[in-house]
Write a protein that binds this DNA or RNA. Structure first.
Length: 284
DNA sequence: TCCTCTCCTTGCTT
DNA sequence: AAAGCAAGGAGAG
């Protein structure tokens, strides 16, 4: 065992729910209840402990990753304050009551972009499987305490891999989208990481130039990786929620839903989105 | 400009 | 076990 590092947590944090909430696809739960994932080039294990989270990692020592794990878990978001701002909405309030420790994550932009290109007309188990298969095939191995997992491959690696190989891994019609986007990213045509913190309109404009990226995928990347908490991805579930709960008489389009989200939920619309998403999925 | 329709792969799920 | 369904996007009309 490694020596572990302690990340004190005073915020609400439900690791199990957060890490398996469909925003990240590579977290696994071990038999001992801990969670492991490759973050960047480190294999990281998180465990719930009294007053916080225990971090183990390799090859870099856990003590050097405390800040980056804290950032990844968005512990800088004051979740109770955000939740109280959103609780005027009864549907969101219901979601908060069921998942009080459900947080958004601050993930790697490229991996998030690739994952959500693969998400189209798919489902969470399948996305998880495909993303893992891509890492197993084209990533680099990292080991921690006898466990080995692979890094998520760089855009350059995805370009080298090519469309046919990705089709072979079950990417289907999304394979050329992923390779096309990887080309633009590796050429420096679009610097995804550089979009973090950019204004919504600028980040969106850049993302929409990428193949396989429409408004919904762009919103997922902005929300889950680029610090745009006002992003409000509209997938099938959210669309049903809006239709049934908010705008039953209107003919919806993406812009209309976004306008409603911003007006109703403001700068933290993305948190409302995530609670609504899970409330709606629960109901069907 | 904006809307509607169709097609695109394949694994989960019932 | 056949069939519906799945965190959509692109292109045509």
């Amino acid at each position: 065992m490694t020596n572990g590092a302690f990340l004190p947590v005073s915020q609400p944090l439900d690791l199990a729910t957060t890490l398996h909430s469909g925003q990240a696809f590579r977290w696994r739960t071990a038999d001992d209840g801990s969670f492991n994932c490759v973050l960047g080039r480190n294999l990281v294990r998180l465990s719930d402990v009294e007053g916080g989270v225990r971090i183990d990692s390799a090859p870099e020592p856990p003590s050097s990753l405390v800040d980056s794990v804290s950032a990844y878990l968005r512990l800088d978001d004051d979740l109770p304050a955000i939740q109280s701002m959103l609780s005027h909405d009864s549907r969101v309030a219901e979601g908060i009551a069921v998942y009080p420790g459900l947080r958004l994550l601050r993930q790697d932009p490229w991996e998030t972009l690739a994952s959500f290109i693969l998400s189209s007309v798919s489902n969470i188990p399948r996305i998880t499987r495909t993303v893992e298969l891509i890492a197993d095939t084209f990533g680099d191995p990292v080991s921690l305490d006898g466990m080995t997992r692979n890094t998520f491959p760089s855009p350059e690696r995805i370009v080298e891999a090519g469309v046919e190989a990705l089709r072979g891994l079950g990417c289907g019609y999304r394979a050329p989208y992923l390779v096309g986007t990887a080309k633009l990213v590796s050429d420096g045509g679009v610097t995804v990481a550089g979009l973090r913190g950019q204004p919504y309109a600028d980040a969106q404009r850049a993302l929409l130039t990428l193949p396989g990226v429409g408004e919904k995928v762009a919103d997922c990347v902005m929300l889950f990786a680029l610090d745009r908490l006002e992003a409000f991805p509209v997938d099938r579930w959210i669309e049903r929620a809006i239709t049934d709960w908010y705008l039953p008489t209107e003919k919806l389009n993406y812009a209309k839903v976004r306008a409603l989200a911003l007006e109703r939920f403001g700068p933290y619309a993305g948190y409302a989105n995530h609670y609504l998403f899970w409330q709606r999925r629960k109901i069907g």
